[in-house]
Design a protein around this nucleic acid. Sequence first.
DNA 1: CACCAGGCCCTAT
DNA 2: ATAGGGCATGGT
Length: 179
Amino acid sequence: WCKRPKTLKEKETVAAEAILTQRANWKNVVLAVENLERAGILSMEKILTCGLANLELLIRPSGFYRLKAQRLKVLAGFIVDECGGTEKAGGMFTEQLRKGLLSLKGIGEETADDILLYAFERPVFVIDEYTRRLAKELKLTDDFSYAHLQQVFEQGLGRKNYALYQDFHALIVIDGKVK
DNA sequence: CACCAGGCCCTAT
DNA sequence: ATAGGGCATGGT
């Protein structure tokens, strides 16, 4: 994503990408998103109401497409039905939202935090493969568990600011891709 | 033609 | 608690 999502559509797109990118080449995620865009299914409401078989077909390039179609449905159901939509969820506490996301099948810590940071603009630092590698190379710590790494980065960055976290994480990903 | 990519769940020790 | 297998496609 590499850019701050501003519009509602951009935020919901990123939420979908959080699932599509699970163990997938980013180029393939782009193909899947382009398909969704063409079909006009780039919103939580449309994902919730469109046919499962159709959704599977559209996101096929991203791999694990049957699992991911289910996961998208579950996520959309949570956001639309439980939260009253992406906008309405703004009134919920971050911890409550995180617990809710983590209770969904197919959404683990990284995916949940991706959604919290980019779709809900909560100051939650995302720990992914690239972040983990960076922490290892720089020997920032010897405890590479998710919770501890997250605490290390959040402490290190000082201010709890979602835009700062978005930009910093994007830079880690860009740097990681250069290899 | 192999091997891999920004996870996560389930099962068997 | 923790290691290992399954999920699936297109890129390199």
